[in-house]
Design a protein around this nucleic acid. Structure first.
Lengths: 356, 356
DNA sequence: AACAGGAATAAAAACGTTTTTATCCGACCA
DNA sequence: TGGTCGGATAAAAACGTTTTTATTCCTGTT
């Protein structure tokens, strides 16, 4: 049908054999020289390196992979949201991938992304990666309170870093946000502002961080000597629609919240949309504190108070930790729990009117 | 320091040799049988396939890769936005990757992601992928009017699919949005609503689709017999900040726009934020039509009229086209230009006040 | 003067496939 | 009966590395 241009594609790229012929050394010596083995004499190495540069030699990754068993790949599990209309879900993954990619930039590792649709799916993919050694290391998020991936990877000794911690006392490399602290701080701030009925728009309770946030939320009430408004905790997916529906439902209750804590940007937008259609205004009729993955709450009208999570930086840490883990470093050294930064854009004390 | 669990990791996975020993056939026969070659007798093949299943044999990807020169990877170039504070940029990439990942799901190909920071960077990475055959195919977006990646890939015959078209008359696989049409339609709608001074918040003019949008924008004016308000075209990165700054600047002009067309979600949020701080209301003081990557404009207050781009579906098409291209299909057959769907959420005629 | 030791390099083996070439064997034909 | 053909399988080579083992040659020691 069409002119196929395939044939002339490879102009013949030099192999280690080419170098051997060119320099007169054996391929064994070439290999050792190029990877800096001390057994080869200094001048020899220099000559070989010079020749390699001259010919534009690049080690063939497939040959190396076969011989060494390494793949030079770092795998990342990425959630896929196939539901139409929930398209904002997971937008923060761009940031995470971007961070990881930066960390890997000047290593020999390449990033490979594996989409999954469900918790079970994610486990199967992780196992396949380990079984076939399709990668040298693995990064994933969305950690469950009891996460089978962590058990499996831990047992097999496969290098991995998780974004989030499970609730078992295992030692493994991880990066996390201090969700208990953040939820506590947000809730305490609202309580200090006079609120007593506070809603928490939360994630699926199988997720470890969802539990952490409930813990912090409850602690704030207890430390203030109040009963926690546990009945105002909504959990579901992190879609905008969920945020909207939850806010509508909660605000329609007989004893509704006077403030809301939102778990991420997506739900926040949904909550604000609900407030808009109920004609209630943030900072006037109701207070809202949110988590902010992608630094966008500053542009809402009005701007709202958020915990800013430097998600790209966390991504960079994930990549860095994985590199170090793959290099054999002790996982106990590879842990980071970051406290998000509170950016107060509203007084959040509407509850003061309640303070009779 | 710590208990290293590495040693017992590989429990020995079966190779083609194991199968040979187990079945009594030679490795050559095994290989042919498993890949369905017709030269091996039917009963033999059945026996071999059964044995393979029984032993849980999985072909070693590294061995295959070395022998065949294929990598079974599809590479994607992903923009990395290192500027702090611009973190919304590129959120739609999650959707694109998600779509591609779905398309590749039941193929043998894995997705590998390569971050780049600049146009030049992207070209270098593309070239490296081709030179070292680090992948069997390539997907990228952000096509320039004159894009060196396309020239290079086209010449080398390397399979690729681009999201967007360059302005050269080359035949290559691509997926695109009909930006000329969309900009025309949005502008024409506003003109029909009585607007004459319309701003276009646009992307960098080196980008092919930025030019397409200017073309459509201008055509709408010309077909209405009006002079296009070219002085109200702003171009820059697609950040929220850019949207905000541009809107503030344009609305402060002596002869300001009465309506704005926004190029994506991120800039739209910036524009709305600017309107908020100027205390102008959408649909009352000014009309806004936007492009909507991630289906979120419905949640703005008020909801605004948008062109919805099914970005995940486009991602799926990208993946599908790449698979077909890698299978040798004629690139002329692999082209999709999608017209985004206009979702009218506002009359966009400022209540008819403009129609004098 | 002979030999041990060591430095430098070469040769060979191995990783797990696919593909090309060779071998075997029974059937068909003259 | 001898030869050819072709179907089925086996053997061997090759892909490009790294690593283990072997060889060479020089130096220093006895």
């Amino acid at each position: 049908m069409a002119e196929n241009r395939e044939p002339e594609r490879r102009e013949f790229s030099p192999t280690i054999k080419t170098l051997a012929a060119h320099t007169g050394y054996s391929i064994a010596t070439i290999s050792k020289a190029l990877r800096g083995s001390p057994v080869v004499a200094r001048p020899t190495r220099d000559a070989i390196v010079a020749a390699a540069r001259e010919l534009g030699y690049q080690a063939n990754a497939r040959g190396m992979a076969l011989r060494t068993g390494k793949t030079y790949r770092a795998a990342v599990l990425m959630p896929i949201t196939s539901a139409v209309g929930y398209e904002w879900d997971g937008v923060e993954y761009t940031q995470i991938l971007s961070g990881i990619s930066q960390a890997l930039e000047d290593s020999d590792y390449q990033l490979s992304v594996h989409g999954f649709r469900s918790f079970g799916d994610a486990f199967d993919i992780a196992r396949r990666i380990v079984d076939q050694s399709a990668a040298d290391g693995l990064i994933f998020s969305g950690v469950l309170a009891d996460d089978p991936r962590i058990d499996m990877l831990f047992e097999s000794g496969f290098p991995f870093v998780s974004l989030g911690r499970c609730r078992k006392p295992l030692v493994y490399a991880h990066v996390d946000v201090d969700n208990e602290w953040a939820a506590f701080t947000a809730t305490a701030r609202l309580i200090a502002g006079g609120h007593e009925r506070i809603a928490l728009i939360n994630a699926d309770r199988r997720l470890s961080y969802a539990l952490d946030r409930i813990d912090g939320f409850s602690r704030a009430f207890h430390e203030a000597g109040l009963a926690a408004s546990i009945d105002l905790v909504a959990d579901g997916d992190l879609s905008t629609r969920f945020g909207r529906d939850s806010a509508l439902r909660l605000l329609g209750l007989p004893n509704p919240p006077t403030a809301l804590v939102c778990i991420n940007e997506s739900t926040t937008l949904g909550v604000l949309s609900a407030l808009g259609s109920l004609e209630r205004r943030v900072g006037v009729d109701v207070d809202v504190i949110a988590y902010d993955d992608i630094n966008v709450s500053a542009y809402f009208t009005p701007p709202i108070t958020t915990f800013y999570q430097p998600i790209e930086l966390l991504g960079r840490k994930l990549g860095e930790f994985l590199l170090r883990r793959m290099a054999g470093e002790d996982p106990a050294e590879l842990a980071l729990v970051s406290r998000p930064e509170l950016i107060g854009r509203q007084p959040d004390n509407l509850g003061g009117r309640n303070r009779s």
